[in-house]
Write a protein that binds this DNA or RNA. Sequence first.
RNA 1: GGCGCGGUCGCCAAGUGGUAAGGCAAGGCUCUGCAAAAGCCUUAUUCGUCGGUUCGACUCCGUCCCGCGCCUCCA
Length: 479
Amino acid sequence: MQIYNTLTRKKEDLIPLEAGRVKMYACGITVYDFCHLGHARALLTYDIIARYLKYKGYQVLFVRNITDIDDKIINRANERGIDYRDLTKQYIGYFYEDTNTLGLLRPDHEPRATDCIAEIIALVQGLIDKDLAYNVHGDVFYAVRKFKGYGKLSGKNIEELSSGARVDVNEAKRDPLDFALWKAAKLNEPSWDSPWGKGRPGWHIECSAMSMKYLSATFDIHGGGRDLIFPHHENEIAQSEGFTDKPFARYWFHNGFVNINTEKMSKSLGNFKTIRDILQKFPAEVVRFFILSSHYRSPLDYTDQNIFDAVTSLERYYETKKRLKDYCAQGLDPASPEKLGDKIAAFKNDFITSMDDDFNTAKVVGAVFEWVRVWNKLLDEGRALCDDIRVFFNVIEEIHQTLGMFGSDPDVFLTELKNKRVTQTAVSPESIEGLIAERQGARKGKNFKRSDEIRDELLKNGIVLKDHPDGTTSWTVKG
RNA sequence: GGCGCGGUCGCCAAGUGGUAAGGCAAGGCUCUGCAAAAGCCUUAUUCGUCGGUUCGACUCCGUCCCGCGCCUCCA
């Protein structure tokens, strides 16, 4: 299988260091606020990579960090007048609520920066010992120019960086490009004892320390959002390779952004949608579908229309799944069945081929919908074979293992969707049922005028009625 | 200014040296008291521009235009 490697800017065969075993590290989040859709995308990208590698039979060791000490956390805690630990505890709780709802796999290790202070200090000391870092009154900086490979991941070179530097020049630094490994504590800041006095880790160093601790000096895959390429990942390389003299991560992947109006969704721009806001309106699977419908490296534009389109699509899939389920429950024996065994085998094959090609989830989604059409047609003609349907759903189950989509029970999904939608309307399920009952009476008495009035009235509130041949009426909420 | 990414149907989105998946929307049909819902069918001779390479390019190369990202915290 192939994975796009940011380091070489091309797709490469994935050949793990140890056969059958993949070690991967992903940059997690800084816990001072709710996660937004952009985080969801990054999280989901690692999730499907880990899931798919497991599906392929690899033993996967997956580590993702939580940054629970940094400037923003300290500032936010100060704003709220609370201890920073209470703040991070709170948002870590929300983080797990969100990731659980999204159905994200738990990493094997999910270390927090504050739990790895000893390792961080040892690493910083090692860099000082190797003369790659220097201490200035309790601040420790990495001397970027001493690391020859600096810029290899982001394609930057040191001269251009220094000429274009728009960083506030910190007087303590010997070079504006140098970055902090350890920050001396200011008044009333959280701090830990260190050989350089009280202080706390810089941002980049925790990932070097943790990947070394839980994986090894060299490991297979490392990733995160595109925005981490520089400086974060570049600095991680400098720290880790500077310290160990061994290659750091072998394959680097970076997911594209979620945009709003073609602009990057970010906290600083304030244009973000939190995961929990979206989850309130839509089933989690819709979020997965929305994100996985495009390739992980492409930009993804969030608009209400786009997410509504995603809902409509998924709804169609589950309507069909429900038809198939009901059809097989009837146990009919089709007169002239269409045998699809070979095509279903090809479908499974295509799934693997698509995922092998740099995790092309969008292509998998397309293939699934081709089957939606095939099945509907066969269902209309009464020619579907339940044996085939069962085999088909076995493949769907494998896709579900990897993508976390398409595997739900249709009634469960459709009901959840309906419930989430109805809470967005002004009417209650009880009042809807009441009006439907009234309308049934009107229809029986051929009072179509009243019947239509009720229907129109409900439609104004986004409630769509569906009359069935058996005389019953069900309702759904307009998307 | 430097580095990088992208421009494929009205919208979203795969793809690729051999002639454009899929979804949404739209139109037609089936169904229906009429509807709606659902299903089926149809919908890009064309892939930002202009050149070049090639038997052949949307796919490779170059130009230009447009959009975006990183260079400061950011998934």
